[in-house]
Design a protein around this nucleic acid. Structure first.
Length: 850
RNA sequence: GGGCGCUUAGCUCAGUUGGCAGAGCACCACGCUUACAACGUGGGGGUCGUCGGUUCGAGCCCGGCAGCGCCCACCA
């Protein structure tokens, strides 16, 4: 216990208490507790390659308030922290930070050092192991920065429970889960058209797409009919794919084209005959109502190609350029000559060129019509996605299996969503899936597929019979480890083996955060105490990725949800109500904000936002939080100064005013507890705060004189007991939101940490309040307010003596007031207080002469 | 095209079984009152987006519309 400070201050509390909590292991998880006494949280592992922004702080603080509530309720809170460090964002950051690029054909160079001065134009090639080393080195630094911010904002995570998605346990978990998916048939490889990012040269998944409105143009040109009756005109935004055209398609009911179904037409420039076909997806209202099917211009082409069983006529390479050789279907000399003009160009360059060619040949009808239209992009990419055919790994997610889809929709209904409307986003995503989950990436920094393939005697790779490792040997890196039964010198040789070159998408590992955090692969005891978890907190923008994928994996492996509740936080908007994002340059760094306003103040702002509600970054709200914290310091100093050192604490609360206040507080505790149980931290804060100001403005003023103890009798003891109980209760109610200032105050008069102290008991307060009537405080505060008003209106000091106050009110309210009459007279400096029963309530105040 | 959310004081937002419109900020006035001047006390300020319905009574329930934001969609 420390003495009361003369001038309490918020300065330095963050550092002081963060260090103490660390030293005392205040938030350590007690792993001896059984499952039903544990509250486990599937903390979102932040992407540490990006910079922290206020949106992160916002969501994590809300979760922390919930964690602190459950801890004070006596539960063993399992609150780990992960770092999402694998994947493309880290690769990008490493490439730019060190000025290197990964060349997987190079051998490991133990003496490799990155360029002294990175040159973004000329990145130095390095081997994959060297590249991974640089990734690991940089992520360690980034993780430190994040941890510092999390500690200064007061997250009550158990810092001994950290993991990284590139770490050994995550890799082992990810590989084991994949191998079990493979054994069950939930994972499979397929050669198929996939969305492809030509910059990063990797496949991407449906969940990582976003549409962007792009300028484009309709180009109109005709295909020659075989009956000689002129041309069929199509309109396309991708004329450069004309050499990849395999058919035209129109709606089966479209009278304009019905007569052409089954015939062939001949493409302009290239002279290739293609069939005219019918399909329901063709929209008579788009363009000319008949479309050119190319392999592949967009995902509709893929659908048509598959359902109409068309051939593949590829022209795009994986680097986004048109291949050098024309498709075999182009046989005419003029056609092959025309293609020469396109070979090797990017899609964009080829588009410009083919427009020239068509115009020169007189094939282009009119001028291209400019439009803007949505184009699919990889969410981190800056060039439109193409579609290429490649061999990739998939995990079944219901995208092409209605039974599984229904099962996953059912999981969504079993999950408790906070707020509930967020479930809609899950359902619309699952219902809109159009294929299984593509998890393989042609990248370097990630969890490798734990597979090798036999190489036949003729040198061909036997992809259909992969060699799998023993689970005990996980994690493995097939690019350096040797499969069972082979020796290292057989790598890449006929009769030997090759390793799978791909890595898993970061979500394929992140979808296992419950399994990683709870020790599924290596800590069965911990797993049994923490899984399935209680809470998944996260942002709404990753429902389709993280939340959905986690349910997919858990559902397949355990046939159950990975958690019982999901809490979705809202967006952070800048003061102009635009979404904050790095590209808009309006990101505010948390460290500066925390430093300026203080952690409790920032936490107050974050915790004031209703669950799932988009919220403006509001400095004014932080100032309110700071003011609240200072008020808490001062009010606490006053309350504690009134309590005698030798107070026994077992005296009865006898006075009507004290009992009234405790009765009201009991209701506040009940409300706050109910709100917290429903994950509504904001409501708990709002109720607590509202009562706290009433407590300070009215109760403290009314009870002040009596609490000095000069009056004698049981009055002072009653006040002191009520003050102590209410103060302790309020401190606890605020503790989840304002952990620093509440801990500071706690340390003045208590031992241990408030964050380990029990959550207030509403019933106990009710018992202590006895026959307390909440109306007493209300009426007394109302009269006191009228007295203040009279003094203020008269422009007199609040210290002004009042000669006489006449209160007219109902008998019931006057009876309530009479119990607090003496407190009221003292607080208002009222000489004569008269209570008169009457229908019209009024308070008449006569100030003493000056 | 389908869906979700929001719309309440100048600003940011509460308002959960339908019962006389609330808080903070900002603004104005007053006050150094022995917890608090980085403060306190008081005040002005709203036909609760719009149209209609249910009801004794609607910010709240039902339906239509509008604006803003977001999610989803096979976007030639």
């Amino acid at each position: 216990m420390a003495a009361l400070p003369d001038k309490p201050s918020l300065d330095g509390l963050e550092r002081k208490w963060a260090e103490r909590w660390e030293a005392d292991a205040t938030y350590a998880f007690d792993r001896t507790r059984p499952r039903d006494e544990v509250f486990s949280i599937d903390t979102p592992p932040p992407t540490i390659s990006g910079s922290l922004h206020m949106g992160s702080v916002f969501g994590y603080v809300q979760t922390d308030a919930l964690a602190r509530f459950h801890r004070m309720r006596g539960e063993a809170v399992f609150y780990p922290m992960g770092w999402d460090d694998n994947g493309l964002p880290t690769e990008r950051r490493v490439e730019n930070h060190f000025g290197v690029r990964c060349d997987p054909t190079l051998a490991y160079d133990p003496d490799f050092t990155p360029p002294a001065t990175p040159d973004p134009k000329r990145k130095q090639p390095c081997s994959r192991p060297n590249f991974v080393e640089l990734c690991l080195a940089l992520t360690v630094e980034d993780e430190k920065v994040f941890e510092d911010v999390w500690r200064s904002v007061g997250l009550s995570v158990d810092w001994s429970l950290t993991y990284a998605t590139i770490g050994p346990r995550a890799q082992r978990t990810s590989q084991q889960a994949f191998l079990r998916d493979l054994a069950r048939g939930d994972a499979y490889a397929a050669e198929a058209p996939t969305l492809w990012d030509v910059t990063d040269q990797t496949a991407v998944a449906q969940a990582e797409l976003e549409d962007r409105e792009q300028p484009g143009a309709y180009h109109r040109y005709g295909f020659q009919r075989s009956d000689g009756a002129g041309k069929v005109f199509i309109e396309t935004t991708r004329p450069e794919l004309l050499p990849a055209c395999v058919a035209l398609v129109a709606h089966p009911d479209d009278d304009r084209y019905r007569g052409l179904f089954g015939t062939t037409v001949t493409s302009p420039l290239f002279g290739v005959d293609v069939p005219v076909l019918a399909h329901e997806l063709a929209d008579p209202d788009k363009g000319s109502g008949i479309a050119m099917i190319c392999t592949f211009g967009d995902t509709t082409d893929v659908t048509w190609w598959r359902e109409l069983q068309l051939p593949i006529r590829n022209v795009l390479e994986r680097n986004g350029r048109l291949r050098n050789e024309p498709p075999a279907a182009i046989t005419t000399e003029s056609g092959r000559a025309a293609y020469t003009g396109l070979a090797g160009k990017t899609a964009k360059q080829a588009r410009a060129r083919i427009v020239e060619l068509l115009a020169e040949a007189g094939e282009l009808e009119g001028e291209p019509t400019p439009i803007t239209h949505p184009v699919k992009f990889y969410e981190r990419g800056d060039r439109p996605l193409e579609i290429v055919t490649s061999r990739q790994w998939y995990i079944r997610n219901g995208g092409r299996d209605d039974d599984l889809r229904q099962q996953l929709l059912q999981r969504g209904k079993e999950l408790r969503w906070h707020p509930p409307f967020m479930q809609q986003r899950y359902e619309s995503w699952v219902e809109g899936l159009n294929g299984d989950w593509l998890i393989s990436r042609q990248r370097f920094f990630g969890v490798p597929f734990p597979l090798w393939y036999p190489v036949a005697d003729d040198g061909s790779v036997l992809h259909d019979t992969p060699i799998v490792p023993d689970q005990a040997s996980l994690p493995v890196d097939p690019s350096s480890d040797v499969p069972p039964g082979f020796s290292a010198d057989q790598r890449g040789r006929a009769g030997g083996f090759v390793g799978d070159p791909d890595i898993m998408d970061t979500w394929a590992t992140s979808s296992l955060t419950p399994q990683i955090a709870t020790g599924w692969v290596d800590d069965p005891d911990l797993f049994s105490r923490t899984f399935p978890m209680n809470l998944r907190p996260q942002g709404p923008e990753i429902i389709r990725t993280w939340l959905f994928a986690t349910i997919v994996r858990s559902s397949a492996e355990f046939d159950r949800l990975p958690w019982s509740d999901a809490a979705l936080n809202g967006w952070i908007l800048d003061p102009d109500r635009k979404k904050m994002s790095k590209s808009k340059g309006n990101v505010v760094t948390p460290a500066a904000v925390l430093d300026e306003h203080g952690s409790d103040a920032v936490r107050y702002w974050a915790a004031s936002a209703r669950p799932g509600t988009d919220t403006a970054l509001d400095v004014a709200q932080m100032k309110v939080g700071r003011r609240l914290s200072i008020k808490l310091l001062n009010a606490s100093r006053f309350v504690l100064s009134r309590l005698p050192d030798d107070r026994q604490g077992d005296e009865a609360v006898t006075e009507a005013l004290d009992r009234s206040m405790l009765r009201q507080l009991s209701g506040v505790v009940a409300d706050a507890t109910t709100a917290f149980e429903g994950f509504d931290y904001a409501r708990a804060l709002e109720r607590t705060e509202r009562f706290f100001w009433r407590f300070c403005d009215d109760y403290l003023e009314l009870v002040k004189t009596r609490a000095y103890g000069e009056a004698g009798g049981t009055g002072p003891a009653s006040a002191q007991v009520a003050l102590a109980l209410a103060h302790r209760t309020l401190l606890a109610l605020f503790a989840p939101f304002l952990p620093f200032v509440t801990e500071e105050v706690w340390s003045w008069h208590e031992t241990g940490s408030i964050h380990r102290s029990p959550w207030p008991d509403s019933t106990l307060l009710t018992t202590t309040a006895g026959d307390g009537d909440p109306v007493v405080l209300d009426v007394a505060a109302g009269v006191l307010g009228e007295v203040r008003k009279a003094k203020t209106t008269a422009q007199r000091s609040l210290r002004t003596e009042v000669a006489r106050v006449v209160v007219t009110d109902t008998a019931v309210r006057l009876a309530a007031l009479s119990g607090a009459a003496e407190d009221l007279r003292e607080a208002g400096r009222i000489a004569d207080l008269e209570l008169v029963e009457g229908a019209e309530a009024s308070v008449a105040v006569s100030l003493a002469d000056q």
